[in-house]
Design a binder for these strands. Structure first.
Lengths: 88, 88, 88, 88
DNA sequence: CACTGGAAAATGCCGC
DNA sequence: GCGGCATTTTCCAGTG
């Protein structure tokens, strides 16, 4: 019997292991990117920039982008509401 | 004068802009990876797994790896301290 | 009218002030404890120990404790998931 | 021989253990205080306050206190410099 | 005295 | 929508 009915088999375990390793792989990639970011800040510092300022700039730009996206979403909702755009 | 002299030129600004955009690009990649991770958890949930458990498993494995790395660092420090290993 | 009515009174302000001072007091206590820790490291150094090693030992012990707690939490979650323990 | 000359005895180990446990104890107290702080923020939130604001208030007051201390130190140095206060 | 690494604080996110 | 958790960011002490 190679498939013991339901109950305890290792299929679920394999599936779980797959999820775990896939996530771990992605997290590793994220970690590598974070490293790269750190290096850039390091490089910027070496070039005489204050990393704090750079961080602030990036944060502000992100906020702007978020505001813009928010506004577009609002506009979108409004246009659908007045029937000038196809509903989702 | 179209460029040199010291004073206010845009070279520093260009440099700064470069740092900012590079970081933003990397952050965007990280965001995309985070999305992927979310999707995997979603998929796992759909397959009947408790995401909480998966997260815990991953965290435990990470802690193990961290502990090992830390222990090796400690051992390294200790060996240098007692002169059984060349200093950095 | 020396007190009630709704509008602008200082009750909220008093409440806020209370929160603020309570937090500040606790933070001060934390600061004092941090001082004590520093003194101990100083004393250890004077006794010829490498503070780096002591810090590492403490961190490792903490990690062990954390890992154990985490594992127990995971086990707990798992047991509830398979119905072998009463839900919270 | 109950005291093996120098070399390997457990006295150093005991001393080290003492440092470790003392630090751990203090860290535990700090952790408890941090808990208390969290509870206060929780309570404040329940009372309708924005914890972000409270944190900001505390930060500002801390900055003021630091500035004041700095100023007093400066004043102190100055007074000593002009001989209007006994040297340290 | 600048720099790195580690602790603490703050913010954001996910699940309930 | 809130509480807990994870990540990120800021701060600070130690070190060369």
């Amino acid at each position: 019997m190679t498939e013991p009915g339901v109950g305890h088999n290792s299929v679920a375990g394999d599936r779980l292991k797959s999820f775990v390793t896939r996530v771990e792989h992605l997290e590793e990639e994220k970690r590598a990117l974070a490293e790269d970011v750190k290096e850039i800040y390091s490089e910027a510092k070496g070039a005489g920039f204050d990393t704090k300022v750079i961080r602030a700039v990036i944060r502000l730009r992100k906020q702007d982008a978020d505001s813009l996206a928010e506004f577009e979403a609002l506009l979108d909702t409004y246009l659908r509401a007045i029937g000038m755009k196809a509903p989702r």
